[in-house]
Simulated scan of single mutants.
Amino acid sequence: MQYRTLGKTGFNVSEVSLGTWQVGGRWGEPFNEQNAENIINKAIDAGVNFIDTADVYSNGESEAAVAKVVKSRSEQVYIATKCGRQIQPHTPEGYTPERLSAYVEESLRNMKRDTIDLIQLHCPPTEIYRRPEMFEAFERLKEQGKIRHLGVSVEMVEEALMAMQYPNVTTVQIIYNMFRLKPGEEFFAKAKENNVGIIVRVPLASGLLTGKMSQQTSFGPEDHRNFNRNGEAFDKGETFSGVDFDLGLEAVEELKRLFPGQEPLAAWAIRWVLMAEEVSTVIPGASRPEQIISNIKAAELPALSAEQMQGVQQVYNKYIKPSVHASW
């Protein structure tokens, strides 16, 4: 495992880490604590020392499982969680410093910890980035020893740039993958300039970039890949990176031709993310322990050639850019 610095947190984190949206069960399935613990232990065994969770993942059960396993281990493992998505309806009016502070307290209880390594605003409405009092609230929590660092999880590059205006924002979590190239244009350079760590989520575009899907692939009724394709429940960009499923399948076939051989497209998609030196860590999810190993092995692949990098750009320009680039 290789490690990179997570911006001004100073944390030295595994370049392939673990996102826990679907840990403990696939999307829409009941949370399975034993499966979650097996996945988290497998990740730490493999050198992962950064785990991302959220209070809304299985209603706090994900936070509890992550903290339980980390407490049982001797290794230094950083836990990042998120707050704000509990606000329903999810509108700016629901955001207050007091409410956010209460969510932090609730996460601390879920995890049975005194301090959170990294708390992140969980994709708040754009208007929140224009309200300094929201960010000042976390300064008070830091002074009280309840958090070590503040970060944000964003939907749009515009929001990432706005968030970095606040000095206490140490990290930005953002979608970046072969179907979402926009963050690499301006945001990455600005993050480097501000020493802000970049956490990349959705590196496989909700599974599209595994190369294993087809038009016959079906998803359960509680799976966001079934019910959120047009943003019915939350931002459309979280599902298949906002790409039309059938169009994405066409693009994947061209990507497969760029990366022939025994290694799956999923591995190359993760390795592609790590080609950006500004990226601190990428957090693919896992619903089974064996997926951890395949994700981590991706970092051991050779660097992509200039021809492959150009090929990914060309596929993006041809299939993806016209419909999604301006949106996020």
Rank of each mutant, 00 (worst) to 15 (best):
D52R: 05
I128Y: 04
E93S: 12
E98L: 10
Q86R: 12
V104L: 08
K68E: 02
G47F: 09
R113M: 14
P30K: 12
G60Q: 07
I87G: 04
R130D: 15
W27P: 06
S72K: 13
P125L: 07
K112W: 00
L108C: 07
Y129H: 09
S101G: 02
L118G: 04
R85Q: 14
D45I: 01
S62Q: 03
V69N: 02
T115H: 10
S107R: 07
R85D: 08
N49W: 07
S101Q: 13
E33M: 04
P89G: 05
E93W: 03
P92A: 10
I119N: 03
N38G: 00
A46V: 08
P97M: 10
R26K: 13
A46Y: 06
E75M: 00
P132Y: 13
P92E: 11
R99Y: 14
E37S: 08
A67P: 04
K42V: 06
K112Y: 02
D117M: 12
C123F: 12
A137G: 07
D52Q: 05
P30V: 03
E29I: 00
R73K: 10
A137Y: 10
E75K: 13
T20E: 04
Q86C: 01
R26Y: 00
K71M: 05
E33Q: 14
T126L: 10
L118T: 04
S101C: 13
T91N: 07
I51E: 05
A54E: 10
E133T: 05
R26D: 14
H122K: 09
E136Y: 06
R109M: 12
